[in-house]
Design a protein around this nucleic acid. Sequence first.
RNA 1: GGGCGGCUAGCUCAGUUGGUUAGAGCGCUUCGUUUACACCGAAGAGGUCAUAGGUUCGAAUCCUAUGCCGCCCACCA
Length: 958
Amino acid sequence: MLELLEPRYDHRKTEGEIYKLWEKSGYFNPDNSPQMGADINADKRGYKISANRRRNPRKSTFCIIMPPPNANGSLHLGHAVFITLQDILIRFWRMKGRKTLWLPGADHAGFETQVVFDKKLDKEGRNRFEIPREQLFKEIWEFTQSNKKIMEEQLRKLGASCDWSREKFTLDPDIVKIVYQTFEKLYKDGLAYRDNRIVNWCAKHQTTLSELETKYIEREDPLYYIKYGPLELATVRPETKFGDTAVAVNPKDKRYSKYVGKEIEIKTLLGPAKIKVIADDAVDMKFGTGAVKVTPAHDPNDFEIWKRHENEIPAPKKVIDQYGRMDLSAFSDNEKSKRYHGLKIADARKLIEEDMEKEGLLAKIDRNYKHSVATCYKCQNVLEPRILRQWFVKTKPLAEKAIKAANKITFRPESGKKVYLHWLKNIRDWNISRQIVWGIRIPAWYCLSCSEPSINPDVKSRWFLVRHGETDWNKENRVMGHADISLNQTGFDQAKDAAKKLKIYNIDLVITSDSARCQQTAEVIRKETGAEIIIDENLRERSYGEVEGMDREELFKHGRKPYMYENKYNGGESYYDVEQRAWKAFSSHHLKNNHKNVVLVTHGGTIRMINKRIKNLDPKEALSRPSIKNAEIIQLDMLEPCKKCGNHFYEQDSDVFDTWFSSGQWPFATLLASGQSSKLKVWRSNIEHRTSNDFKTFYPTDVMETGYDILFFWVARMVMLGLYTTGKIPFKNVYLHGLVLDKDKIKMSKSKGNVIDPLGVAEIYGSDALRIALVAGNTAGKDIVISEDKIRGYRNFATKIWNISRFILMNKPGRNNSKKPGGSIVKLTAADKKNINELKKIKAKVGRHIERYEFHLAAETVYHYVWHNFADKIIESYKPRLRAYSAEAAASAAKAGQSYGGQARLSAKEESDAAAAYSTLETILIECLKMLHPFMPFVTEAIFQKIRAGGFLMMEEW
RNA sequence: GGGCGGCUAGCUCAGUUGGUUAGAGCGCUUCGUUUACACCGAAGAGGUCAUAGGUUCGAAUCCUAUGCCGCCCACCA
């Protein structure tokens, strides 16, 4: 520990050590707070407890759930801001005597992390779409875990006094369980539903996004006026014209009323066509020509129009695929469509413009048309609306309650409430499905036979259909059938890969066809998983009789029979035959082993037939499905039989939840999952939720402190989901801080590369300096412009505090003198009392400011007092009184030839006055340290340790 | 189109229900080795608080309009 001799405070030599002391003390954990009525001088672990603290045992609680930083990178200054603000509140209320919990966590940050990881893969020349789900998940898991560790260390460096023993990650099993239960409850209450709707699709990221994840940007695009039979209409997207299903006009528009309800003849690039004219209020008579093409598959408004006219006009016609390319497969019998099929949208538009011009279909083009387009907030690419089956949360009922609850929440700044209410009042249903791997997989299983969903079920067991590995005959495209061919080396390798993937599922049993290629594959899997093995000849491949052993050419020469259900070769079987024996075998194994995790190793044809039965496919469909690769695994999850059709086999939704769906449950999920858990509690809707002591003690929490940029994303959703699940608002106060901007006033973000590393500046100037610099001069809701100069200024303040303390402690009676002051009489003078009184007023003021969340005023008040009052005026005025104790004074007296007889020459009055002076200064110092502690915890604790070793400033009575 | 915020010292920002000489950090000027601190102390310069009206004994603060800057929400065929 740094000695007081040093004229400058060195944060490098103290901060780490101080944090370790705090952590070791266990006082971040509210369970270790001195207990009510404790009649001891030290707590159970031997730390000193001040008399004041004993008189004021913990009465009430104070809890903040830390906004979990994204575990996909390191902390930036924005994090430092919230750490500081929250730590100020936590330390203040802890000193005030509340039982205080600050619960830390980390967010898996689904899409955000996926994007970060995609970039990493890109650098490595890889691509997430080529990596199997499990492997990709595992890699991202490891990536986030190592980031998480770094982040935790960074939080420690910044002095965060959070309870690490309660730390949570959004993918912790107990959190996921609670998220699942909430989803199940929403489903049962009819508030979560699955529907085919038009959603925002990012072709780059290959996933849908919610409204909040879109960013509208202003753009200039040509506006094409197209001739549509007798009408003319305006569009910026001529390439979607192929998907038009109607033309809409305003019902009041007299110009077009004669066409309404009728079909008009139009000329298109694909030839003549007929299209119906409908009337809809959404059409603006004043825009363009007042007539609009309706393309429900590729435009949200048109989709709505179609919904309103579902019975009058055809269903949406898809003409653009998921990669943002023209998909005219619906027009495959039209030769002209080939010209555009497969083109990127931009290229197609250009070509179509040219062609329309040639065909005389264009009336005019407005080249200066300005409009805004929805883009992906991450990659800025234009979003392509697509119709997709997604899970949605019906938000209106949730929002209504959140609106009513608004008057029970105090917003800082106050304007936050207005913004919050406005958003809730205009809320739309929330798409919570994301087509990425990284996240909480949606706990919806669909019956493989009838598609009936089952939400959050118990999976009894998992069955895997595995095709055998490769043989030389596979390679040579020879018909195998019952021919007993062994695996080649590739085949063994494939089997090994499959076995590794299966290993994580605790396989109990391997059932295999008796063909060598299957037995060999099964044996590899058995070895890897340690499962039992059963051989069953009824799982054999279809017998091809006389054509077995032929390659493609030979088979063709011999006369290939169409790939049909009933066909068979001489001496061979039909698919129908295979289905009969294989299904019989499969059923009997299933009957006996449905509680076990089973791998069934068999053949392509056999798998097709088993699939046919499970999925209730017609023969043509069963045979036309894409071929099954060697060693390919098909997973079947076994649930309670489907209520609708009795089938046992299900597959899970492949999508994951929008991160904010789980984050929205963070306050109650963390508290339910932390601390000692107690019995299960039944909430509304018959869903069991565990409750916990922490939940009972700390929920609702006191403050939600976060950036205003996630007011909708997070705060509003926490209120909605918190109210829905627990019936209570998750927090009483919302404090919204501004964004930290760089010197050019641009938001700091990793993608822009303008982040300032807070740990870097903390390393140079100290965490204390950084913390108070982020607080001083900053108010709720306003953006923060931080400069190094400012931080340096507050570093100087830390040095000032250090020197004030150093000076006072140097004058401690008995420190430099051989003799202690004679009497113990400390009689305060009028000036002492006045100074202490003034101090009390300052302290009350600072406390009041913190209680009102006026951190900047608190910081400035204490700063001004300590430096310009205490140091510049009070200490200066006390110097003559302290002189009596000084060794230097003795020395200078000796120099002057006087015999300085120590205290012998001091009168009792002088002695007492000096003692009073010291006592007053020490009192003020300690109070100043307390006031400063929430803002600058390290330097203040380091000094306190010099004064009262064995105790903690952190735990002193404010 | 709707809403919100800002415009205060050279720079970055405070200024709590309207009340005496409008504050902080950095920068600037002059002076200063005094029981700690030069990462310091003392003294000082610097602001018609965006503009124009209004309410008031009194306005940076409340009201109305205007300008510029920024943000959010919604629609855009």
